[in-house]
Design a protein around this nucleic acid. Structure first.
Lengths: 257, 257
DNA sequence: CGGGGCGTTGACTGAGATCAATTATGGTGG
DNA sequence: CCACCATAATTGATCTCAGTCAACGCCCCG
């Protein structure tokens, strides 16, 4: 079981907090139905009071808020395996929206079911709590980036994070990953303008660190990008003992140390 | 019990998730010993693996990270009643530090005790989980401020948040609160320089919104400050039905709506 | 009464925003 | 296969908010 399992949730939870086979079984069977969303479609809206949690199966989504002037701040990207609105289980009203970056597929787990599960299986409750704590850790790291890092550092840092997180769920191909984000989305995530993102990306290319085209990001010098972004993956709280699939050179793993 | 109780933790949890008398009793008796810290002293350090959770009894603390260049990002302020490192119960290693803003008094609750309690009293576990989710919501709101709001808006927003949060634990005196933060600390929290904080504070004063002197902040026009900071307190997820102590005009309460 | 931290002010600088075209690019209908 | 459209990327010119540097004043505290 585990790292060769196709279900990204299983992969992720296994990284986070090893669960037994029966517990994983329970989680898989809890998914009531699967829903599809188009790119740019809102999945959950600010102010909603959802009756179910969403488990992302395929595609990328983001959390965001809009300011009064209509500026957007993206607060996180979520990847397959993420239960991206677990908080709705406990906090009734959404304080932000969640939108599809790419077309995506989402499994619904009714709150009712989820609450039963967490009461019956305290280890699952614990794993979910842990997941929300790691989410919070990512928020803190982004805050640090936005508040105190240069645009060059911010973008490099984000790329490192996305690579490591995709690797965990088996979606990295060596040092190449899917990168479906527009420059405006990157800007909204990092507190920059789309124009400035464009110029900074060119610097990263000129430095030979990356190639970015056709929604595909290739990282040529992992250590260089890591240094450029001051990336230290400890905040992702992954279990270190793990040898990911297509990773020659052990690059992303080094960061977790 | 409840809003007239002197223990700020009780006040806060009661706001968040009403607990029974026995549950509150348990929590109060769990505190093993009380420790004092001087202002500016680190309470928990990045990289630590704490063996106990800290409940803040008196004083203000902040979470922060340092970048490679030595810049500091403060990621939150915590007030009496906050269990500010509940995450250490689940995530072994600290990914940030926590430091005293003022002299403060902290009660230690050993992880061992805490784990027993959360297993025996699932409602307490739920309340703690909820608390960490609200923390995360605050991180998201700060991210939005830092990424997309002007310095003027950021500072106004922060002041609104601090007033509401202090009010919850009975530490607001009408629209006047203790404000022990240096301008450098405000800057580190909001991604600004101390110089710019100084100039922006003068604008807030000139606009007649506040008086700030001698570690005391008086808010003269609540609605004006709220508008200036685009403050909408929904993200704090407080229970609306509550009439706080010394609040004439119901000002802070309006925001939660 | 003499430091040291904090707040305040002024002058200068600069990273990144804004505005405005222009050029790919990918998807669509004919 | 191609014209066409919308979206995204790119470029240039200009502007501005906020950072940096440096000096100075205030006030608390030993």
């Amino acid at each position: 079981m585990s790292s060769t399992n196709k279900n990204p949730l299983i992969r992720k939870l296994d990284h986070l907090f090893p669960l037994g086979g029966d517990e994983l079984q329970i989680l898989e069977s809890a998914c009531s139905r699967v829903v599809q969303f188009r790119a740019d479609q809102d999945i959950v809206c600010d102010g909603d009071r959802p009756k179910a949690c969403n488990l992302l199966l395929e595609g990328f989504v983001c959390r965001y808020k809009l300011t009064a002037e209509g500026k957007r701040q993206i607060m996180s990207f979520q990847f397959p395996g993420d239960i991206f609105d677990a908080q709705s289980l406990i906090l009734e009203e959404m304080d932000h929206s969640i939108s599809a970056i790419t077309p995506c597929k989402v499994a619904l787990i009714p709150h009712e079911t989820m609450l039963e599960i967490t009461e019956t299986y305290p280890r699952i409750a614990r794993a979910l709590w842990k997941d929300t704590l790691v989410d919070a850790a990512v928020f803190r790291e982004w805050m640090t980036s936005i508040g105190r890092r240069s645009s060059y550092q911010r973008i490099a840092h984000l790329m490192c994070e996305v690579l490591v997180r995709l690797d965990v769920v088996g979606l990295a191909h060596g040092h190449t990953i899917e990168w479906p984000f527009t420059q405006t989305e990157i800007g909204d995530a990092l507190g920059l303008s789309n124009v400035h993102v464009n110029r900074t990306l060119q610097q990263l290319r000129k430095a030979g660190l990356i190639t970015l085209a056709n929604s595909s990001l290739a990282i040529h010098h992992w250590d260089g990008l890591k240094d450029a972004g001051q990336f230290d993956g400890r905040y992702l709280h992954l279990r270190p003992a793990r040898s990911p699939a297509g990773m020659e050179g052990g690059a992303p793993q080094q960061m977790q140390a």
